[in-house]
């Protein structure tokens, strides 16, 4: 066991970004509070993305009032599967994934059945703000349920893997893919037990994984290797991450993207305070990469062209 001072010294040497540093030096300085609603409200994000021509899952319905819930059953009848999300939800809380129906009941992603009453209760909880950040009344989005790319079939369990890319001043600086496990209950959140796998930015190949705090090579449920997978549409993904800067106005932002079998990459949400576990998944600290971009900023060489920014990232931010 290492003593805390040794750990701190080593972490500082690799430039690991801590929570205090992330908040004080990046989030507070580069993310203006007036732009927060753009990412905190998923409906706004979606509309902005559509306006900017970025791909998002199709919106089926928006629920703003309690009485709209009852009408939802008929409204959603044409869709076999769909996802209900609170617009201000955080960390995947309150997301309900419906994969099908059985009579009057809904079949959830895990396979369990849900009566109409339970379904309505879940939605009304969401409306009253149970899952939103500050507990304020919220609205709900019902949208297209992603059919995930078969590339990931062998390395996920019961849910949709997504790609998280940290974009700093429009430069994609670090990326990982999050694979759901049995432990995470199909959710792609690392603190709930999903696996994070670091992605090499130039090549789009997965490099190493982390589960909890431990490095892993195989998916714990499917036992398939999670290293060396090629992420499809990688350049497109990087471009989406780069363009989310202009979209959100936020300098330091986490972009969550899913890969659909037919539609390709779709933006799920943006995050103004992206987590730090991406560094464990990549085995590297964020600071050196962020510094490299700050260096560009100081010398006045920041690019306004997302394609140039992706090219810079590809030539500088390799994860080995």
């Amino acid at each position: 066991m290492l003593n805390p001072f040794t750990i701190a010294r080593r972490l500082r040497r690799i430039g690991l970004l801590g929570l205090n540093a992330r908040n004080a030096d990046y989030v507070l300085l580069y993310n203006q509070r007036r732009f927060y609603p753009r990412v905190d409200d998923k409906l706004q994000t979606k509309n902005l993305a559509i306006a900017a021509g970025l791909p998002v899952p199709a919106l089926y319905a928006v629920v703003r009032e309690e009485h709209e819930i009852a009408a939802l059953h008929d409204k959603l009848a044409p869709y076999e599967s769909f996802v209900v999300k609170p617009a201000h939800g955080s960390g995947g809380d309150g997301i309900l994934v419906i994969h099908g129906r059985r009579g009057n009941r809904y079949r959830r992603a895990g396979g369990s059945l849900m009566s109409r009453g339970e379904f309505e209760h879940h939605l009304s909880n969401g409306l009253s703000g149970l899952y939103s950040l500050g507990g304020q009344p919220d609205h709900l989005l019902v949208e297209y349920c992603v059919k995930f790319d078969p590339v990931f079939e062998k390395v996920s369990y019961g849910g949709v893997p997504d790609v998280r890319i940290i974009s700093f001043l429009g430069y994609p600086v670090m990326a990982m893919i999050r694979l759901p496990t049995r432990m995470s209950d199909g959710k792609a959140n690392l603190h709930q037990g999903a696996i994070g796998v670091g992605i090499d930015i130039p090549t789009g190949l997965t490099r190493r994984g982390v589960w909890g705090t431990e490095p892993v090579e195989e998916h714990p449920d499917t036992e398939n290797s999670i290293v060396g997978l090629a992420i499809p549409h990688w350049q497109e993904l990087l471009l989406i991450a780069a363009r989310s800067y202009e979209l959100s106005g936020l300098g330091y932002v986490g972009v969550d993207i899913v890969l659909d079998r037919e539609l390709g990459p779709l933006i799920l949400e943006l995050n103004a305070r992206p987590g730090l576990s991406i560094q464990i998944a990549n085995g590297q600290g964020l600071e050196p990469r962020l510094r490299a971009v700050q260096q560009l900023q100081r010398s006045g060489n920041l690019s306004a062209d997302p394609i140039e920014r992706v090219a810079f990232a590809c030539s500088h931010f390799a994860t080995t």
């Binding site: 290492l2 805390p4 040794t6 750990i7 701190a8 080593r10 972490l11 690799i14 690991l16 982390v210 705090t213 431990e214 490095p215 560094q279 464990i280 085995g283 600290g285």
Partner: peptide, 8 residues
């Protein structure tokens, strides 16, 4: 420090 100890 505990969370990122694997990195160190």
């Amino acid at each position: 420090l505990f969370r990122f100890r694997a990195l160190a």
